[in-house]
């Protein structure tokens, strides 16, 4: 299994090279947004308002961190379950969002939007939140501060560990991994 290093934001060409199941270490800027932030962003778009950050080529991390202790950059910050963002993701992907980090399978509509836009869906390890927090080097709330954990945060990450869950061609590791494992055991 290859471990690939990527700098975010990244180009579509680089994303095209990623295959479902690849291990990737992401370095650069990503944005946290989960349920309520997605709802608000899509409402803002409907009202013709500008989003709180440039969605083009952006990587959104479905997460709501625990509060930072004094001297800490961020509290524990693992991924939240992605399907809850499925109703909102295609709109943002069509506006140029490069991808997202979360956990768990996505709807057919999100997969289609991923393929249509050459985007990628990454998975981080759910529940490994203290470990993941170590790869965050800076964090700043940039919108919806009233939402607390659900506010949009700009994170600077270094070697943030993820797996390619759905690649730009629509290959889905949640299906492939299980099939490969079961086939191996039948042999």
């Amino acid at each position: 299994m290859n471990e690939i290093r990527l700098e975010a934001p990244f180009s579509r060409e680089k994303l095209k090279e990623l295959k479902a199941g690849d291990s990737v270490l992401i370095t650069g800027t990503i944005y946290t947004a989960r349920d309520e932030a997605h709802k608000r962003m899509v409402e803002m778009l409907r009202q013709g308002k500008k989003l709180p950050f440039d969605i083009r080529d952006a990587l959104i991390y479905y997460a709501g961190p625990a509060p930072a202790r004094p001297g800490q950059v961020i509290g524990s910050v693992g991924p939240t379950t992605s399907y809850r963002m499925d109703p909102y993701a295609p709109v943002l992907l069509d506006l140029g969002q490069a991808g997202m980090i979360g956990k768990g399978p996505r709807s057919p509509e999100v997969k289609e939007a991923i393929v249509r836009n050459g985007a990628v869906y990454f998975a981080a390890i759910g529940g490994a939140a203290a470990l993941i927090a170590r790869s965050v080097t800076a964090a700043e709330v940039i919108a919806f501060e009233d939402l607390g954990a659900e506010a949009i945060r700009k994170l600077t990450v270094k070697d943030f560990p993820v797996t390619v869950a759905i690649d730009s061609q629509g290959n889905d590791q949640y299906e492939l991994g299980k099939i490969k494992y079961l086939n191996k055991n039948r042999e």
Binding site: A63, G75, A130
Partner: peptide, 30 residues
Amino acid sequence: DWPVAGDILEKIEENIRIAGEERLPLCQDT
């Protein structure tokens, strides 16, 4: 018996160690 699975379980154990040593939430969803 599946390497990817073994790797993930190892990371989960590492997370348990870090959380315990530094008194950090194991998961952000407390």
